[in-house]
């Protein structure tokens, strides 16, 4: 009976099943650990093109202090960053530069579109030179509406992004 079972075919199936179980057992906690690590070390690139950047400045000041939530303020170079915060109007001239910034960053990378201008063009939606929303140029993870958004809204957006990262599949 047992001898009949141990054929090359069955052994293959057995090894495959074992692999699945192993991946389930190790992969999930590992994924959680990796996501957790990414979650608390978001290094942002600031695309400070307009007035929303003032609110970002306020948010990083002592009163609101986003550093509590793991969004570290200073950064060295684009290669160390994994978050683009677009704070303000993106013109058609700026759009290729924004894409270039995004392309220079290593994976994984996330994008926050802050303010009405970055989402839809905002006040300047019918201008000849303003991009109606940055999602035509780079993929956006979190939209933070407002003109400008209050620092609390920005913090809420960052927490939303962290929630999203928590549930992300690690590739």
């Amino acid at each position: 009976m047992l001898k009949e079972l141990i054929t090359p075919n069955a052994a293959n199936v057995f090894v495959g099943k074992l692999g699945d179980i192993l991946i389930r057992a190790v992969g999930k906690p590992l994924e959680y650990a990796i996501d957790w690590g990414r979650l608390w070390s978001l290094w942002p690139v600031h695309i400070e093109t307009a007035c929303c950047s003032v609110e970002f400045g306020a948010a990083s000041g002592p009163r609101f202090d986003v550093e509590r939530f793991g969004i570290i303020e200073a950064f060295g170079s684009l290669r160390q960053c994994d978050l683009v915060v677009v704070q303000g109007t993106i013109t058609r001239k700026m759009a290729p530069r924004l894409r270039m910034v995004y392309d220079q960053m290593p994976d994984p990378k996330y994008v926050i579109a802050m303010g009405a201008c970055a989402i839809t063009g905002g006040l300047y939606f019918d201008s000849y030179n303003v991009l109606p929303g940055i999602d035509g140029v780079i993929p956006v993870d979190v939209y933070i509406p407002g003109c400008p958004p209050r620092p609390e809204t920005l913090i809420q957006g960052c927490i939303l992004l962290q929630e999203k990262i928590k549930r992300m599949k690690v590739r």
Partner: peptide, 21 residues
């Protein structure tokens, strides 16, 4: 001031149409 690859009519003329999304 305009982008380097601007290939439209001058933008402050009245008959300029914005492209939208």
């Amino acid at each position: 001031l305009l982008p380097e690859d601007w290939a439209d009519i001058p933008p402050l003329r009245k008959d300029f149409k914005i492209k939208g999304r």
